[in-house]
Design a protein around this nucleic acid. Structure first.
Lengths: 326, 326
DNA sequence: ATGAAAGCGCTAACAT
DNA sequence: ATGTTAGCGCTTTCAT
């Protein structure tokens, strides 16, 4: 029931219920140490409902020092429309926010904009915590943030040991994919990894792939290793280069499913069969993977669980709960 | 240069620059009618920089009455990870926000949560305007919002004539796809449309498809028409049902590319060739469409332009600019 | 069990 | 050209 056209404030509710604004605040926020009689409680609740009262977010944030908002930093911006993992993450993060009464603010940094936009938002106290997904370039701003004790959750890897992070276990996935293919008898393995720009994880991933080969006494062939970004187009291009370079591999480890789909197109185009001539293993388990032709074999990443974990962890850190420190 | 550990406020800047907080506000907000001397300007700017001053978002919003934040309502939540159009939209919307100094708050409504969460956010003044993408069920809350004059931009269709909307021209796309296939000589056309729940656009889209058939004197066969949601899985299922029902179509109009990809998998699985036995036309131009096997023919939707238009329109409405009224 | 009062940090009308 | 002052709507300590 909304009575008037104008926003009603806590003062209006207080008047209507015949109590003070303090009491309204106590009741509506379920304040522990305030012993409010059940009767008063009811009156306040009803008055609020009748007036359609919704607390002013900014006022509450200002007075309370908390914005009730979580930031998701996606970097770079270009990643937004093409990275399937991000979409899954966004979904589960949103889910957690919904459950816990948080808002989700999406932020990004593009090369054109000042890279510290998100730092500004932190300093403006617009968000209470930050989940970071993207390429881990050297970023002093982020490092400083983490070291200052600000609630930051990283998906994947970052050099800071201080960081709380939800590991995407990329390395493990690569190791398993590679081992899987080797187990199938493959000896000429290509690797198109997910490594745009100065991603700090690149070297590590390459090493993991190399080590997997090494363990099986397989020679590492640099010509069969390429870096893509997070798009299908990059997978397509990388695979074309690999195929153009000489004797084709018999199997491909793709950094993510989107890359795999692009690479598969290049393989078919070159007249090879999948998996007859070249086997492909993807990574991420994007929803359309099983509808690819042929259905893409992929290393499942528990994206949903990871997204939820990020959200829960960030919120726990914000609230200073001990579990955050595990 | 950050001097102290603590957040500095406009008061600190004022002191350091030897002016009042008003002047600080005027300078930092480039207030028109305040004639501030160039000298003072410089002093204030320098002081702010030295102190690493960033205005408190909530305080500013409270005092100024504007949050500087745009809301994107995605409904239902399940749509988030699977709808490619949404991802494109998110990207371009983010782009516009970045350029215009706005923030983007992602909201959603799931069946489990009270459906008016986003209305709360509006009433809490947490966002200045709203872009809505999703299924247009009957939604009194949204209708009321629009009628109240609140800045709402709708993508697609909505019954309210008052609405400002960026048309996704779904109908036009369906008409064109259908006409295209008919032009190719097809007479047995299937249609898997994008119509979950009580989407208000469903009827319209069906009518458009039916009319296109009619114009070519082709009989409308209900058994060849199915509704999917926005996922590849739904396209797969729908196509299976169509194929199981009897004589297969020679062509398929898919409501979006994701549905098309799922449907294509079902077609291949049933042993038919694409496009030899059954031609498929998708809709949306998702990035991986050209990497499908065979490359998916798709009606291009200017998703990027549409997203930008949404953002620009919403911001124009917020600012009360006349162009918003075109 | 409830209320009074003092901010939170900023903006903007109104002086000067 | 700059400062004074009064809010914006809420939370929260301290009294009662």
């Amino acid at each position: 029931m909304v009575n008037s056209r104008k926003r009603s404030t806590s003062r209006d509710v207080a008047e209507q219920a015949g109590v003070s604004r303090t009491t309204v605040s106590f009741v509506l926020n379920d304040v522990r140490h305030a012993n409010i009689s059940d009767d008063t409680r009811q009156r306040v609740r009803r008055a609020a409902a009748e007036l359609g009262y919704v607390p002013h977010a900014a006022a509450r944030a200002l007075a309370g020092g908390k914005s009730g908002t979580l930031g998701l930093l996606v970097r770079p911006l270009k990643m937004l429309p093409v990275d399937a993992f991000l979409h899954q993450l966004l979904h589960s993060l949103m889910e957690v926010c919904l459950e816990r009464g948080y808002r989700l603010l999406v932020e990004t940094a593009s090369s054109s904009s000042p890279p510290e936009t998100y730092v500004q938002m932190v300093r403006a106290k617009q968000i209470d915590g930050l989940v970071v997904l993207g390429v881990y370039e050297e970023d002093p701003g982020l490092t400083a943030l983490i070291e200052s004790g600000y609630p930051v959750v990283l998906v994947g890897h970052h050099p800071s040991p201080e960081s709380r992070m939800v590991s995407s276990a990329d390395e493990d996935g690569i190791a398993r994919s590679t081992a899987h293919l080797i187990g199938l008898g493959h000896r000429r393995l290509a690797f198109i990894h997910y490594a745009p720009l100065g991603d700090l994880g690149e070297e590590l991933r390459l090493r993991v792939f190399a080590r997997a080969l090494e363990r099986a006494d397989i020679l590492y062939l640099p010509g069969l290793v390429m870096g893509g970004d997070f798009s299908a187009a990059s997978g397509y291009e990388a695979m074309r280069r690999i195929l153009a370079a000489g004797q084709p591999p018999t199997a491909l480890v793709a950094g993510n499913d989107t890359i795999a789909i692009g690479a598969m197109a290049a393989i078919r185009e070159a007249g090879y069969c999948i998996p007859g001539d070249i086997a492909v293993v993807g990574y991420d388990d994007i929803p359309t993977a099983r509808f690819a032709a042929p259905p893409l074999t992929t290393m499942r990443v528990p994206a949903h669980a990871m997204g939820r974990a990020c959200g829960e962890m960030a919120i726990a850190m914000i609230r200073g709960e001990p579990e955050a420190m595990r």
